[in-house]
Nucleic acid binder design. Structure first.
Length: 809
RNA sequence: GCGGAUGUGGUGGAAUGGUAGACACGCUAGUUUUAGGAACUAGUGCCGCAAGGCGUGGAGGUUCAAGUCCUCUCAUCCGCACCA
């Protein structure tokens, strides 16, 4: 008898599948399409571990299942290969990032291949290939021409370690998302994409997406839309007006002071002579604080009085203007009306500096505390007695009459800063002309190719290494033909990944980013599988680009990813996070070499628990997964060597049909762990039946083949090998998913549970077609139950057909 | 503080309001001339000799019946955070 040896069969079938091109998606097929996509990986220097591989295993099971269900499946793979790690590696080892990335990509591809994933490799893409980034640049120009890409000088996050600016989304707790260094603010002229123009649509369209509530709420939170009003306060003895944003215009009568962020110019200009020194000292002190210090919550409030006063437009009251760093320059107007009775921060500030606190909304909160709650207006002139929700609207309407206020919507999200002062990225296709300003590189001159250079070290002066390459920089203006300079910054890598899912529909097109007809055929992505770490970066950016493309008429859909599936993280066996630095990663390649094989790893990835929940890797569990496949192997070998027989086995029919039903239903809702459990149960049953009966060859052949088909999405190699051994021609992976027939699932007898007063007291066998009376009588006849019913009056009898009888006494 | 999620045996986890613990790991006992990180059989929620009782983070409630529905509460994890 042949032994199950994954090392023999897995490479063999991988080569065969590749030769037969069975996973290639067809642009011509008339079968319904299914686009299954896993986020394309960054080919890093480190090997993939079982956590990364879970992502691909889930996607592959979905792709394979759908293929067998008769869909024309697009399941592509590519490389998101621009970015800092490759460049830093290149600097350290003095090799070109190109060379480093090519090596990593080759290794990554081998690792994916040895797992037996069913990718259509004919569509492989690489974001660092000029044939690809030509079109990333093309999209940049589209945004530029639509006024959605612009340059602006402003204070921006700067990572001193990576020596580049970062987008807001890429700063996590005041630290660089890549290297973890504390970031600084630097005044620089940078390129932005105007994602804020799409803020409303990005919030509203979340509604219809089949995404987890967690990711949706992260995006909503990040966009941070809040409805409110802008209200103008005139500064006394000056032409200045301070405009504030508030979500609670109803509390306007309770505004007893104002606060301006230290960064605002107006903070200095309105300051009186007496307060000048104090204000300057405070502003300096505030700017010296790191952002991490400033962001610490529960910090003691600090601030300084400007000496100036403003007039509350609603009642003419004079309110002092203060400067304090609890007001952020970057949100709203950078100035607030402070209502200490109804806002915690204002309350703390008023307490500290002894400013007046006036309650204007009456509710059941204590007098000496602040309250956000709604209530009835008091101390608010004509609005007294009105409900606060109502007053909120009325006050804004009344202010609008004198143009002292208006309704506005505010967002926390800022525009997406996309320029990077680094080498390894797609060059921004802009030429700076002294006469014509920023000019787009004409389309026929794309791509602007990233030149090979000597030193990848960033200068740190705010310019990329490309600035040191005169042949690259010096050019002529496409408009006037005069001497001009190329933009030397490169694009954020997230620009490349904002449209890659479209390129897979038409990966080799050199006339356009994609053929609209092909995009129409394949997109949107039906199942997008990836980690939650992309919640407010990639997933937001890609949605934004998609909407821009839709507006431009390039595509016919507004959301790129209909269904998003966030797989749960795989933790180390001790429950801690797996990381290269901790040295606790588990690599599939190592497990495969140990003899478990890719199929065992794949089974384990899915059997560990629900696919969307975190789970600790289990070393012992590997044995169980492997044993399961061993037992299937052995059963098929024993069958093949048996003489066969003619005895029929209704039991065999029943268990296999039942399993087909269960596995199909589970796969439909991605319940992989229970699908595999059902296969294990089926296998246990088959062994039991085998031990009792002789083989009935026709039925056994069918039973084993069906079981292998159900196994195929999870363990494709062993399924394919045994499929062949059973005499089948053609790949199991292009075979038709087995169907079940309800007629085999019908039971002759049923076990009915019997409850007395809600407690389980026994069970009884009845015929499947027993009437209610027969079932109830059988239940009463049960010895135990009879004991509980003796001498009692049955007040109520409930019969749940085929399930239970419940007596109430 | 705001938002999202999760709480079930020794462990990972199963359960359309209807027999809680499927499946697997681990453990216990046994079988096999068993080199192995084997294979097979039986058992395994807790208390109890048993009958029985108790059990899904906690407290209430609805129901003949609650892990599942409702109210309150506790704990853990994740995201955001002086956002007006």
């Amino acid at each position: 008898m042949q032994r199950y040896n994954p090392k023999d069969i897995e490479p063999k079938w991988q080569a065969q599948w590749e030769a037969d091109k069975i996973y290639q998606a067809s642009d011509e097929s008339t079968k319904p399409k299914k686009y299954v996509l896993e986020y394309f990986p960054y080919p890093s220097g480190a090997a993939m571990h079982v956590g990364h591989v879970r992502n691909y295993t889930i996607g592959d099971a979905i792709a394979r299942y759908n293929r067998m269900k008769g869909f024309n499946v697009l399941h592509p793979m590519g490389w998101d290969a621009f970015g800092l790690p490759a460049e830093n590696y290149a600097i350290k080892n003095n090799v070109s990032p190109r060379v480093a990335i090519d090596e990593n990509t080759k290794r990554f591809k081998e690792q994916l291949m040895q797992m037996g994933f069913s990718y259509d490799w004919s569509r492989e893409i690489d974001s660092t290939d000029p044939k690809y980034y030509k079109w990333t640049q093309w999209f940049f120009l589209m945004l530029f021409n639509k006024g959605l890409a612009y340059q602006k000088e402003s204070l921006q996050w700067w990572c001193p370690h990576d020596k580049t600016v970062l987008a807001n989304e890429q700063v996590e707790n005041g630290r660089c998302w890549r290297c973890g260094h504390v970031v600084e603010k630097k005044l620089l002229k940078q390129w932005f994409f105007k994602i804020t123009d799409y803020a409303d649509r990005l919030v509203e369209d979340l509604e219809d997406l089949d995404w987890s509530e967690a990711i949706k709420s992260m995006q909503r939170n990040w966009i941070g839309r809040s409805k409110g009003a802008e209200i103008d306060f005139k500064v006394d003895g000056s032409n200045e007006t301070l405009t504030v944003f508030t979500t609670r215009p109803d509390t306007l009568f309770g505004a007893t002071f104002m606060v301006v962020a230290p960064e605002l110019e107006v903070a200095k200009s309105i300051t009186t002579a007496e307060q000048k020194d104090a204000v300057e000292a405070y502003v300096q002190e505030a700017q010296a604080k790191s952002d991490i210090e400033r962001q610490e919550t529960n910090r003691e409030k600090s601030g300084v009085f400007t000496g100036a006063y403003a007039t509350n437009p609603v009642n003419g009251a004079k309110v002092p203007i203060w400067i304090a760093d609890y007001v952020l320059a970057g949100y709203g107007t950078g100035a607030i009306m402070a209502v200490p009775a109804h806002n915690e921060r204002d309350f703390d500030f008023a307490k500290k500096f002894d400013l007046p606190i006036v309650r204007v909304v009456q509710n059941d909160a204590a007098d000496d505390e602040f309250t956000h709650a709604e209530g009835t207006m008091i101390n608010s002139g004509d609005y007294d007695g009105v409900a606060s929700q109502e007053a909120r609207e009325k006050i804004v309407i009344d202010l609008a009459k004198t143009e002292a206020g208006k309704e506005v919507v505010n967002y926390k999200m800022r525009d997406w800063l996309i320029s990077r002062q680094r080498y390894w990225g797609a060059p921004i296709p802009i030429i700076h002309c002294p006469k014509d300003g920023a000019v787009a590189v004409p389309e026929d001159q794309l791509p602007v190719v990233l030149p090979e250079i000597e030193s990848y070290e960033p200068s740190g002066d705010g310019r990329s290494p490309l600035a040191n390459v005169p042949e690259f920089v010096n050019t002529i203006c496409p408009k006037c033909g005069g001497p001009a300079e190329r933009e030397t910054d490169t694009m954020d890598g997230f620009a490349c990944s904002s449209w890659y899912f479209l390129r897979f529909a038409d990966p080799h097109n050199d006339q356009a980013p994609f053929d609209p007809e092909k995009a129409k055929k394949w997109l949107p992505v039906d199942d997008y599988i990836g980690g939650a770490e992309h919640a407010v970066m990639h997933l937001l950016y890609a949605r934004f680009w998609t909407k821009v493309m839709y507006d431009e008429g390039l595509i016919n859909f507004q959301e790129p990813f209909k269904t998003l599936r966030n797989q749960g993280m795989i933790l180390a066996p001790d429950g801690s996070k797996m990381s290269k630095s901790k040295g606790n990663t588990i690599e599939p390649g190592v497990l495969i070499d140990q003899g478990y094989g890719a199929d065992t790893v794949r089974i384990m990835e899915l059997f560990l628990g629900p696919w969307n929940q975190a789970a600790a890797w289990s070393v012992e569990g590997m044995g169980g997964a492997n044993r399961f496949l061993q037992r299937i192997w052995t059963l098929v070998q024993e069958f093949s060597e048996s003489d066969g027989g003619t005895a029929e086995s209704p039991e065999l029919q029943k268990i296999v049909h039942k399993t087909i039903k269960k596995v199909s239903a589970d796969l439909h809702v991605l319940s992989f762990n229970t699908a595999i459990a059902a296969l294990m149960e089926c296998l246990n049953e088959l062994y039991r039946i085998k031990a009792e009966d002789k083989y009935a060859s026709v039925e056994w052949q069918w039973a084993l083949e069906s079981m292998l088909q159900l196994l195929a999405p999870f363990a494709p190699h062993i399924a394919e090998e045994l499929w062949e051994q059973l005499g089948q021609e053609g790949s199991i992976h292009t075979s038709e998913w087995p169907a079940y027939d309800e007629k085999y699932l019908v039971e002759d007898t049923l076990t009915i549970a019997i409850q007395v007063n809600g407690k389980l007291r026994g069970e009884v066998q009845i015929a499947a077609d027993a009437t209610e009376d027969e079932a109830v009588n059988a239940a009463k006849a049960n010895d135990k139950v009879a004991g509980y019913l003796k001498g009692q009056t049955i007040r109520k009898t409930i019969y749940v057909a085929g399930k239970l009888v419940s007596f109430v006494v």
